[in-house]
Computed example of a mutant assay.
Amino acid sequence: MTVPGVPLPRGGRLRELCRDGFLLLVGEMCDSGLFAQVLGKVTTAPLAVRGLAEMDGTGTLAERLGAGPDEARLIRPDAHIAAIIPHAGPEQVKAAVRRASRLSKE
């Protein structure tokens, strides 16, 4: 499944953000700073962590993705959703990034 090409309030589209590497979209109950810190130790692949609320304060993006406040979505550079991570914590997110990084090399 690919992410929707929704426009973002600050300009651009969601798919454009995916082109530079992996993108981790996190719900409002997730600590994006912690995930960014942890994931920097897991992979050397380009990876950005963004809060859904910071990208779209209206909640439209989270609704379109079906994302809850404690969930994360790992998006590949080709805009496909590599993982949906319910109750996202550092260990679950690290495992998803490792799997997606390994698969992208095959």
Results as ranks from 00 to 15, higher is better:
G27Q: 00
R102K: 15
P86F: 06
L14E: 00
P4A: 00
T44R: 13
A79G: 08
V38R: 03
G27W: 01
K105Q: 15
Q37A: 15
P77Q: 11
R10S: 11
L14S: 04
A79N: 11
H80V: 07
C18I: 00
G68C: 13
F35D: 05
P46R: 04
I81R: 03
C18F: 05
G33A: 13
M55D: 04
A96Q: 04
V49M: 04
V49R: 04
T43D: 06
M55G: 03
A79Y: 06
R50P: 03
L61V: 07
A53K: 02
P9T: 01
G59H: 05
E71P: 08
E28M: 06
T44P: 11
R50S: 12
V3C: 00
D20R: 12
E16A: 14
A67V: 08
G21Y: 04
A96R: 02
I75G: 05
P9S: 08
P7L: 03
P77Y: 02
T43P: 09
P46I: 01
V38F: 02
G89Q: 10
I81M: 08
H87C: 13
G12W: 00
S104D: 12
A96V: 04
A36K: 08
A83G: 10
P90F: 08
C18N: 04
A72P: 07
G21F: 07
L17T: 06
M1Q: 14
P46M: 00
L103G: 11
T60A: 15
F22D: 06
K41A: 15
H80S: 14
E106C: 15
R64S: 14
L52N: 02
Q37F: 15
H87T: 14
A72V: 03
G40Y: 12
G68N: 09
F35C: 01
V26D: 01
R76D: 10
D78L: 09
K94W: 07
L65V: 08
V26R: 00
G68M: 04
A88E: 02
L14Q: 09
P46Y: 02
S104V: 11
P90Q: 06
A83V: 02
E54Y: 05
M1D: 09
G12R: 04
E71D: 11
L47A: 04
A36T: 05
P77N: 00
R10A: 12
S101Q: 08
E91N: 14
H87D: 13
L52M: 08
T2K: 05
P7F: 04
P46W: 02
G5F: 01
P46Q: 02
V38M: 03
K105I: 13
L17V: 09
R76K: 14
M1L: 09
A72D: 06
V3A: 05
